[in-house]
């Protein structure tokens, strides 16, 4: 007789949970202090040097007759972003600032302090990431849980996962014990590519570090390109987090949050004798 039962499986090791939440803290503060730092020179360029008259991204404010208008310029496109980008603040107290005060740490424009926040949490982020990598490699977490296996990368399986994800129907029962191929590739991409890219492009803005590894700056096409890629990658992480949060909610908010706190994830199984 088959009976479906809800069982709790141990899904996330303590080190995964710990490094996950430290990452949440570090990335949040890195983003918010980074947006404040950006405000000191709210323009982006490509190459080694700034071309002040021709930034490819510019967030600023300008006078339109009696009014000040905040604008965001990307390439040849220009948008009015008053209230959010370029010109924002409390009602009646708008000021020229790239990102609004609610998005930055500290809330007021302060390059010196935002750099202190940024570099402190950069260290926390790097140390946390190294711990995750070392433990993940030693314990087999990265190899066993994140590296797609032969079954995962079969085109039929990939197509199947895309199809059920698109309908927001997620793997159930035994299949939910492990990450599916979309989760694996996304997490692996974030852990091995996107987050390290953030650190490397950040280091490439350091004139001290540049002297040690000038070739690395060339890999990114120059210091200003590295700054640009740092900025783009930051928003790629924001995009990932938004998608991640959406998926958490869509596939069971409390079950997911519990699993990242206690490690236990509930699955519904109809396999007789499935152990708890």
């Amino acid at each position: 007789m088959n009976r479906s039962r809800k069982i709790l499986v141990y899904r996330h090791a303590a080190i995964t949970r710990l490094t996950h939440w430290i990452n949440v803290l570090a990335l949040t503060l890195l983003l918010m202090s980074g947006l404040n730092i950006f405000g000191a020179h709210p323009a982006l360029y490509w190459g080694q040097k700034a071309t002040f008259a021709h930034p490819w991204v510019l967030i600023a404010a300008e006078q339109h007759g009696q009014h000040t208008v905040g604008f965001t310029q990307i390439g040849s496109m220009k948008f009015n972003t008053t209230g959010v980008l370029g010109y924002s603040g409390k009602v009646g107290e708008f000021e020229q600032v790239a990102f609004p005060s609610w998005a930055t740490v500290p809330s007021y424009r302060d390059l010196a302090d935002s750099r202190h926040w940024h570099f402190f949490f950069a260290w926390l982020f790097v140390i946390n990431g190294l711990v995750y990598w070392l433990v993940g490699l030693a314990s087999g977490h990265i190899r066993n849980d994140l590296l797609p296996n032969g079954h995962d990368i079969a085109p039929k399986n990939i197509w199947h996962e895309i199809a059920i994800h698109a309908r927001l129907k997620f793997p159930k029962g035994e299949e939910a014990r492990r990450y599916n191929v979309l989760q694996k590739t996304t997490y692996l991409g974030v852990v091995l590519v996107v987050l390290p890219l953030m650190v490397l492009t950040g280091l490439c803005m350091s004139p001290g570090f540049n002297a040690a590894t000038p070739w690395l700056v060339d890999v990114f096409g120059g210091r200003q390109s590295a700054r640009t890629i740092h900025f783009i990658t930051a928003f790629a992480i924001v995009g990932f987090v938004l998608l991640h949060l959406f998926m958490v909610v869509a596939s069971g908010t409390w079950n997911n949050i519990r699993s990242m706190i206690t490690g236990r994830y509930a699955i519904v199984t109809d396999k007789p004798g499935a152990s708890t």
């Binding site: 020179h41 080694q48 002040f52 390059l111 803005m205 210091r223």
Partner: peptide
């Protein structure tokens, strides 16, 4: 050499 301002820009 490249001059890197703390604000974020560079000039050579």
């Amino acid at each position: 050499t490249r001059h890197d301002c703390v604000e974020g820009w560079s000039s050579i």
